[in-house]
Design a protein around this nucleic acid. Structure first.
Length: 563
RNA sequence: GCGCCUAUAGCUCAGUGGAUCAGAGCGCCGGCCUCCGGAGCCGGGUGCGCAGGUUCGAGUCCUGCUAGGCGCACCA
C-alpha cells in the first residue's frame, strides 16, 4: 500500500539520524555503551521550537549517567545539517533536540494530497487487522432514542476512522429479539389490537405505553384484519411478537439509514438460542470446571478471571441468564476470526464489562480480544431548558424527530464532538443555528468557500496547474505555512483517533483546519493578477478542500459545494 | 458500602506515550467589505476542584478527599 503520510516519512528519517548519532558517539567513546533505544520524534507544538523534536536525550540521561543537555549536544553535533529535510538542528531547554526543516516537506505534502485525493489521510497503521465494532444494538421494543443516535454516530465514525487507519472493519448490530422484553412487546401490541376491536382490556403496568404500540396494532389490523383475533392464544401471541419485532426493526434500520449509518451484519440473538450456542458455552465452562451449583442456580466462577463476584448463568427456573447468552454471542463473534472486537455500551451496562471479559477469557480467548467502550449519555437542551424525557410514559424525543429537527449533518457532528467519556449536552438551537457559532456550518462553509474559489477560477479561465509544476515556494506567508503543516498532520490525526478510539479528535481537527483556512482567506487572495502565485494558491486551496472533504466523509457529514 | 465516568476562563469544551502550553469558541468591548461567498476575519483577559506522592519536570501518572452523573438482579 502506498503511504501518504509525510510526517511518518520524516519521523523515520529523523529517528535514523539520531540512532546513527548515538551509535557513532558510542563508538568514539563520547557516550557510554547502552542499547540504542526507540527514538520518539514528535511534531513541535510551538513554531519557535522547530518542526519536529525529540526528548531522547532526557530519557537517556539515566542509563548514560550524563546530563541530558550534554547528551543532546553530543547527538546534535553529529548531525550534518542541512541534509535531506533538515535545515538545522538545535539543542534547547533541558535537553530537547529540535529539528528545523526546510520547505521540501511542505511542498511534498501538497503534491501528495493532490496525488492521493480521496485516499489522503489513509494509512496502513492497522496493517489490515480485522476489527469488528458492535454498536447501537437497541432493544427492538420501540423507536430509537437520542442515546442510540449518539451511539450510531460515534460507532459509525469510529468505524470510518479504523478503515482509514488501515483496518478491515465490520459494523454489527445485535438484535435483542429473545427474552422477556419481546414477550412484553408482543403482548402490548396485542392488547392495543384488542382495544381497537372494542374489547374492554387494559394494558398492564409493565407494558409499553407509547403511541407507536397503537400504531403497530392499527397497522396489523389494516393488514391482517380480524382474522388474528380468531387465532389460538399461542398463535396470536407469537404472531404479535414476531410482527412487532419485525416492524420495529424495520423502522430502526430506516432511522439509521437516514442517519448515514449502515451495518454489515444484523445478528439475531434468537439464532443463538435456536442453534444451541448457549448450551455449548455451558458445556465448555463445565468442562473447565468453572460452573457450580448454589441456591438452586448454576454459577459461573467469573472471579477466577478478575470479576468481583461469581455470576449466575442458569436461573433457578432453568432459564439461561442474559450473561450466558451474551457470552455465546461474543464467542460467535470471536470465532468469526476478528483480531479485535469492540462493543459500544451505555454507561448503565458498565457492571457487565468485568463479567463479560471474564467469560471471554474463560472460553479461551485472549484477555484483550474484547474491548468495551462506555459511551456516556446525552441531554437535550432547547432554549436553554433541559428536555425532560420519560420512556415509560412514552414521552421522549426520538432519533427521527431530532434528525428531522436539526438535520443529519448537525446531529452527526454534535454527537461526536465530545469525548465519548463525557456526558453530552446537545443544544438543539445551536445545532440549527446557521452561523459561525455552529461548528458544523463553520466547517461546511469553509468547504463551500473553497469550492466557490475553484469554480471562480474555472469561470475566469484560470487553468489549474498541478502541484508538481507550480511554484510552491511562493506559499511563504505564515498563514500558508501553518495551513500546510495542518494538512500534513491529517494522517497522523486519524491514526491517533483510531488508537485512542476518539472520534472527537477528528471533529476538533476539522474545526481547527476550517479556522486556519478562514483566517488565511481573509488575509490573502487566492485569485489575483499574479499568475504564478495564483497557481500556487490554487494548489493549496485544492489540497485544503480535499482534506476537508475527506474529513467530513469520515464524520458522515455532507460536504456542500454551495450553501 | 462498592464500581464506572466527570471536575480546566463567567458559559460550553480542547489539551495525542510527562518536558517546548494553559488553549478555542461563546458572552463582553473595539475594529475589518471599491477585493475569490461577512454563514467570514482581526484585536482586548481571567483558570487546571482540594491535599499529598512519584519525577530533573505533573491539567496530564499514583493515592486520599470533595462535588456531580450513572450503575451495583437468579431483568434484558
Amino acid at each position: 500500500m502506498v503511504s501518504y503520510n509525510i510526517a511518518e516519512k520524516i519521523r523515520v528519517e529523523l529517528e535514523e539520524m539520531i540512532r546513527n548519532s548515538i551509535r557513532g558517539a558510542q563508538e568514539e567513546g563520547e557516550l557510554p555503551p547502552f542499547d540504542v533505544p526507540v527514538v520518539p520524534i514528535e511534531a513541535s507544538r510551538d513554531r519557535s521550537h522547530g518542526d519536529f523534536a525529540t526528548t531522547v536525550a532526557l530519557t537517556l540521561a539515566r542509563s548514560a549517567r550524563m546530563a541530558p543537555r550534554a547528551i543532546a549536544t553530543i547527538l546534535a553535533k553529529r548531525i550534518s545539517a542541512p541534509c535531506g529535510y533538515v535545515e538545522r538542528v538545535e539543542v534547547a531547554g533541558p535537553g530537547f533536540i529540535n529539528f528545523f526543516l526546510n520547505r521540501v516537506w511542505l511542498e511534498e505534502t501538497l503534491i501528495m494530497i493532490e496525488d492521493a485525493g480521496t485516499a489522503y489521510g489513509t494509512s496502513d497503521f492497522g496493517g489490515g487487522a480485522r476489527i469488528q465494532i458492535e454498536f447501537v444494538s437497541a432493544n427492538p421494543t420501540g423507536p430509537m432514542n437520542v442515546v442510540n443516535a449518539r451511539a450510531g454516530a460515534v460507532g459509525d465514525t469510529l468505524a470510518n476512522i479504523f478503515a482509514a487507519a488501515g483496518y478491515q472493519v465490520s459494523r454489527e448490530y445485535y438484535i435483542n429479539d429473545a427474552g422477556n422484553q419481546v414477550d412484553v412487546l408482543g403482548k402490548s401490541v396485542e392488547l392495543r389490537y384488542r382495544q381497537l376491536l372494542g374489547e374492554p382490556v387494559e394494558l398492564s403496568p409493565e407494558c409499553y405505553q407509547g403511541d407507536y404500540i397503537t400504531d403497530l396494532a392499527r397497522r396489523a389490523l389494516d393488514e391482517r384484519g380480524r382474522d388474528i383475533a380468531s387465532m389460538s392464544d399461542d398463535e396470536r401471541r407469537n404472531f404479535f411478537k414476531s410482527y412487532a419485532v419485525a416492524e420495529i426493526l424495520r423502522m430502526q434500520r430506516e432511522s439509521l439509514r437516514n442517519f448515514g449509518v449502515e451495518f454489515d451484519v444484523w445478528f439475531s440473538e434468537k439464532t443463538l438460542e435456536d442453534s444451541g450456542a448457549d448450551k455449548q458455552v455451558m458445556e465448555i465452562l463445565d468442562s473447565k470446571g468453572l460452573l457450580y451449583e448454589k441456591d438452586g442456580a448454576i454459577w459461573f466462577k467469573s472471579t477466577a478471571f478478575g470479576d468481583d463476584k461469581d455470576r449466575v448463568v442458569v436461573k433457578r427456573d432453568g432459564k439461561y441468564t442474559y450473561l450466558l447468552r451474551d457470552l455465546a454471542y461474543h464467542k460467535n463473534k470471536l470465532d468469526r476470526g476478528f483480531d479485535r472486537i469492540i462493543d459500544i455500551w451505555g454507561p448503565d451496562h458498565h457492571g457487565y464489562v468485568a463479567r463479560t471479559k471474564a467469560g471471554v477469557q474463560a472460553l479461551g480467548y485472549p484477555q484483550d480480544a474484547l474491548e468495551v467502550l462506555l459511551l456516556q449519555l446525552v441531554t437535550l437542551y432547547s432554549h436553554g431548558e433541559q428536555v425532560r424525557m420519560s420512556k415509560r410514559a412514552g414521552e421522549f424525543i426520538t432519533m427521527d424527530e431530532l434528525i428531522q429537527e436539526v438535520g443529519k449533518d448537525a446531529a452527526r457532528y454534535f454527537f461526536v464532538m465530545r469525548n465519548i467519556d463525557s456526558h453530552l449536552d446537545f443544544d438543539m438551537e445551536l445545532a440549527k443555528e446557521q452561523s459561525q457559532e455552529n461548528p458544523v456550518y463553520y466547517i461546511q462553509y469553509a468547504h463551500a468557500r473553497l469550492s466557490s474559489i475553484m469554480r471562480q477560477a474555472a469561470e475566469l479561465g484560470v487553468k489549474y496547474v498541478p502541484a508538481r509544476e507550480a511554484n510552491l515556494g511562493l506559499l511563504a506567508e505564515d498563514a500558508e505555512v501553518e495551513l500546510i503543516k495542518k494538512l500534513a498532520a491529517f494522517p497522523d490525526e486519524i491514526i491517533a483517533a483510531a488508537r485512542d478510539r476518539a472520534p472527537n479528535r477528528i471533529a476538533k481537527y476539522a474545526l481547527d483546519l476550517a479556522g486556519m483556512f478562514h483566517s488565511f482567506y481573509n488575509s490573502y487572495r487566492v485569485l489575483s493578477d499574479d499568475r504564478e502565485l495564483t497557481a500556487a494558491r490554487l494548489v493549496l486551496a485544492n489540497a485544503t478542500r480535499i482534506v476537508l472533504r475527506n474529513l467530513l466523509g469520515i464524520l458522515g457529514v455532507s460536504a456542500p459545494e454551495r450553501m
